[in-house]
Design a protein around this nucleic acid. Structure first.
Length: 477
RNA sequence: GCCUCCUUAGCUCAGUCGGUUAGAGCGGCGGACUGUUAAUCCGUAGGUCCUUGGUUCGAGCCCAAGAGGGGGCGCCA
């Protein structure tokens, strides 16, 4: 294959007057003379200038939307206003035709819903290519952040033998014949004949295994796919999503909050620093979209301003009890604007979280010390015996981005909570033994990777920040 | 799982009170155009009005069921 130069490289340090080859897909062919070529390396296209008298008419006809080309020519300073450099085409080869009469995409604005059904083509569009470049950037930044701070990347299992991880409905994993599964004497499915000789599921969280790592390596994080068989139909939920779960020995809930805030700000900052063109493109996309919207439906700030604002300001930190008081003293509550009454002991509703984040504080909020009754068994009991050392990081637009806690390290207290919540000891014998032998205070949290990407890209639906979304009733591609 | 809205040309949508031949913009196609930037200009084709059943002299429009999609809620990340 001929050596090609990537567009990102050309734009960064233009090899002026050199003869180079570029390969990519056609975004536009204007005025019978100008091709906007895109190759994935950059949010920007490279302009190819064609003298149509030098090329065969049949070849020129094939330069259609999203056709794949190889172009060789001299790189020169552009005479036009929209770009700094351009290639004067000397050779054009059609690597892949794209018949516009039958091709699914069109050179025009198309809806996210439509493009979602064309997931095999949507990455070629300006918006989705920007989203997926940024998605990569965030993933890389996750590893860089933890590596630079002495954390170890721990691979938690995808197939799990315990169904007590407590984070939601699970997908079953089996090699048994579902038409005629073997039965035990009392008529139940006999999982002892299954591949693992027991019932297994896809993981809903790597946290419990991460705790094993933390109590040996000190600072670890997991970053892997997570599966929840919840019938959740929202723009913030996926059945298959990626989660980052740091777990740290000798951390309490305060340290945990500090880590969460610093981590999230780092990710945003990394993207702003390394993907400014993509962020600018997405920022402009939202502005264009909102031009036709009523003022009250528009975002209070543009994407870029929102991201900068989050980095530059401290997150608000309040307790659950304070949150409930604020909500009950709000004029919205007094005017009965809330559908649900904010009441101590009940979980905060989405409308309550939105009020705190978007109306009251107007910035990310960390709520901590929730009532024990609404949180998981492993969260550490506070001295008041009523609340646990849990924390949620709430973001504008998407709500909960992070959920975490200081873990209950006291064996007797953990056992007691497990009994209260009906969790079998045998199921988590190893988790209990961690508390018996060399246990210590520790804490961690889970960050929803797609929710983070959603926030950074400003995409409205989580299905548009993962290449191939899995949701109830949908597993295409 | 619950609530709600939507489904008309390739895409985005309009379609009045139930009435003759269902419209627009964009996209496509044909042509023009050698400095365009969502290019522009002229011309042109393109319809299972989501499906099934019903009401009616007559249904894109009314009713019922189903399918697909969006938004909201719950569950959470």
């Amino acid at each position: 294959m001929k050596k090609r130069t990537e567009i990102a490289k050309i734009l960064k340090t233009p090899p002026l007057n050199a003869e180079i080859t570029v390969m990519g897909w056609v975004r536009a062919f204007r005025s019978n003379r100008f091709i906007a070529l895109y190759d994935g390396s950059s949010a920007n296209t490279l302009q190819i200038v064609v003298d149509f008298e030098q090329f065969d008419e049949v070849l020129l006809k094939k330069i259609s939307f999203h056709a794949c080309l190889s172009v060789t020519g001299k790189l020169v300073e552009s005479q036009g206003a929209g770009q700094s450099v351009e290639i004067l085409a000397e050779q054009i080869e059609i690597l892949g035709e794209s018949n516009p009469e039958v091709y699914a995409l069109q050179p025009k604005v198309q809806t996210m819903e439509f493009l979602r059904e064309k997931a095999h083509f949507r990455m070629r569009t300006a918006t989705f290519s920007a989203v997926f470049r940024i998605r990569h950037g965030v993933a890389y930044a996750v590893h860089k952040y933890y590596n630079d701070r002495g954390f170890y990347y721990l691979h938690s299992p995808i197939i799990t033998g315990s169904d007590a991880e407590g984070a939601g409905e699970m997908f079953q994993v089996t090699t048994l014949n579902l038409d005629q599964p073997p039965r035990t004497e009392d008529g139940k499915v006999d999982f002892s004949q299954d591949f693992f000789e027991k019932a297994t599921n896809l993981t809903v969280s790597g946290q419990l295994q991460a705790e094993i790592g933390a109590l040996a390596l000190g600072k670890v994080y997991t970053f892997g796919p997570t599966f929840r068989a919840e019938n959740s139909n929202t723009s913030r939920h996926l059945a298959e999503f990626w989660m980052i779960e740091p777990e740290v020995a000798f951390y309490d809930i305060e340290d945990n909050m500090d880590l969460a805030e610093d981590f999230v700000k780092y990710l945003i900052n990394y993207v702003l620093e390394h993907y400014p063109d993509d962020v600018a493109l997405l920022d402009k996309r939202i502005q264009d979209l909102e031009k036709n919207m009523k003022m009250e439906d528009r975002r209070p700030m543009g994407l870029l301003d929102t991201l900068r604002f989050v980095i530059e300001n401290d997150f608000e930190r309040i307790t659950y009890t304070e949150a409930v008081e604020l909500l009950r003293n709000s004029k919205e509550f007094k005017k009965k604007k809330f559908e649900f009454e904010p009441e101590w002991g009940k979980d905060l509703q989405a409308e309550h979280e939105r009020w705190l984040v978007e109306k009251h504080f107007k910035k990310p909020v960390i709520v901590r010390n929730y009532p024990k009754g609404i949180k998981a068994f492993y969260m550490r009991m506070n001295d008041d015996e009523q609340t646990v050392a849990a924390m949620d990081v709430l973001f504008p637009g998407i709500g909960e981005v992070i959920g975490g806690s200081q873990r209950e390290e006291r064996h007797d207290r953990l056992l007691q909570r497990m009994h209260e919540m009906g969790i079998e000891e045998e199921e988590l014998w190893w988790y209990l033994e961690l508390r018996k032998f060399g246990g210590c205070p520790h804490a961690g949290f889970g960050l929803g990777f797609e929710r983070m990407v959603q926030f950074i890209t400003g995409m409205g639906n989580i299905r548009d920040v993962i290449p191939f979304p899995r949701t109830p009733g949908y597993a295409e591609f």
